[in-house]
Design a protein around this nucleic acid. Structure first.
Lengths: 322, 322
DNA sequence: CTGAAAGCGCTTACAG
DNA sequence: CTGAAAGCGCTTACAG
């Protein structure tokens, strides 16, 4: 671990001014070819690395994006998108500073304040709909809401249209001959219900709503009794994790899937492709969504972003063919 | 999005010097109570937020930790530890800048250089054992290797002792009456093999080694044929994901688990607790490991860190009682 | 094509 | 208890 060389060290070593050294290393402005080469050699020799804090301070631009991560991005599908976002931004020389979504507004405010001067753009991957957007208004950053509740009209967002995929799943369940369709939902998982209702209404069916406390394996397992009690012959779960938890319940109670109960989930969790039976699911538009977020980050015009991207059904064994 | 007020703005508003304003807001040094209150009121009024870039530059300390994330931390167990690390560091006012482990040494070097001046400490959550540590030597940062290969004697690390948990798993398989024990391994997943071999040797048994290309569901599924061909009555998988992939293979081929083949995995993936049968697994020492990493981050003495923490068996239905 | 100077917004000695 | 000054390492006008 050595003390890093500064631009001044390089300039001195090459016998030029700091201004010229900077020009040569950053390719801004003309430098005589021979001089530029001497400067680059000196930089290499001294192992010069520019200081990002100094650059950020002076140029008022850090190329660091803040990401506030909520529970819904702790899933496999969420992490997949986050990793894709990181690698795509990295190609454009942006870096990501992460922070867990705090439980309170004050803590969130403190987090964003800590980031001031180093993070000019913040992506929310999670937001509490009960929070007031006021705390954001007195902060100097720019905000984007990625697949989470948006606190007001004026904020930019990119979101999966969950209704389209949910409707496709329920339509497929109905087409396979099922009539008693349950929807195991969590009230914080938004957007699916509209699609489920719409697909049912198109066939003049009523959905059996079953509320769940969470979106995890155990929550799907715990919903088993209510599903059976309702006499359902098909279930749409808000997440694949819940659907897989219900698989365990069905096994313990001798219920055959999809024979007695057909199942569909949401998220394209990779475990679904290896479950028994393989799980039908709805996939997020990962690539398109990440592209929209990257466009937002790199847009110097700062045009408003209000993107809603369709999801799609991946049909597997858990929805039988009629 | 307003222009942020500076410390000078606050000082002017309160009618004091910038030095005194700083003292009052940071609690360093004495300020007359009444004056301090006036300064704090002005800061509140102007919505003052200190500029992190300026502070980092001057104080040569950013409280931002770099995390270079490899494939092995893309798993549920890895993300769980990363989330725990983030929230624990956050309590101490540290933030995490993330970057995916690049595929080449040059790209890694570029990444770390980009971070210079803003990140003084880097945690590697992934490292390619074929790489040369030389690229690290000419960088100004301090490095820790968390549960990944370490490039040389002089580097700090914190690691799970996988051998202890693997040995416990194999010992349990043997105690349940199994004798033909296979180990489905990947050569990049280090540390388990020693434990597996040791537990087998203690009972004068030979392990059936089965190499796998990866550590995912599909790899476990793909290992099914070799497991059956070897006549195994028990299998230890390097990951739970592989074990669960094998569950699918066993189902498709009418093999009963644990009746015909008992199974154990590694990582304490939450899906294992809901699998059919529930999966025996080895858990990482999450809390202890994160505590060691945080100690490393906050240690101003920079004492060498060489921590190896034991893993533990979680026994479930996939290992029958004799 | 090149350089001397100012300044980003803080913190750190130092002097009263 | 308070303040004037220097300086962290860059980039950005500006002048030659």
């Amino acid at each position: 671990m050595k003390q890093a060389a500064t631009l001044k060290d390089v300039a001195d070593a090459a016998g030029v001014s700091i201004r010229t050294a900077g020009r040569a290393l950053r390719n801004d402005g003309p430098v005589k070819a021979q001089v530029a080469e001497r400067i680059r050699a000196a930089a290499r020799e001294l192992n010069y690395v520019p200081n990002a804090a100094a650059r950020s301070l002076r140029s008022r631009s850090s190329r660091i994006i803040g990401a506030v991560i909520g529970e819904n991005f702790r899933t496999e599908a969420g992490q997949r998108r986050l990793a894709l976002l990181e690698s795509t931004l990295r190609e454009q020389n942006f870096h990501i500073l992460i922070g867990a979504l705090p439980t309170g507004e004050r803590a969130l405010s403190a987090l964003l304040r800590d980031w001031t001067g180093i993070v000019e753009q913040v992506i929310f991957l999670g937001w509490n709909p009960e929070w007031n957007a006021e705390i954001l208004e007195c902060l100097p950053q720019r905000f984007l809401f990625f697949d989470c509740p948006v606190p007001g009209e004026k904020y930019d967002f990119v979101r999966t249209d969950r209704a389209s995929g949910a409707a496709a799943a329920v339509t497929a369940l109905i087409a396979s001959g099922r009539r008693q369709i349950a929807h195991v939902f969590n009230r914080f998982a938004q957007g699916r219900q509209a699609g489920v209702e719409q697909a049912a209404a198109a066939e003049k069916l009523r959905i059996i709503p079953i509320e769940s406390d969470g979106l995890e394996l155990r929550d799907g397992f715990n919903s088993g009794a209510a599903i059976v009690a309702a006499g359902a012959d098909a279930v749409f779960f808000d997440t694949d994790r819940m659907a897989l938890g219900f698989y365990r319940y069905a096994h313990e109670h001798g219920i055959s899937i999809p024979g007695e109960i057909a199942v569909a989930g949401f998220d394209d969790d990779s475990a679904g492709a290896y479950a028994i039976p393989t799980l039908s699911t709805v996939a997020h538009p990962d690539l398109d969504a990440v592209r929209c977020v990257v466009d937002w980050v790199t847009d110097r015009e700062r045009a408003p972003v209000r993107k809603v991207l369709p999801s799609r059904l991946i049909r597997r064994e858990s929805i039988p063919h009629e």
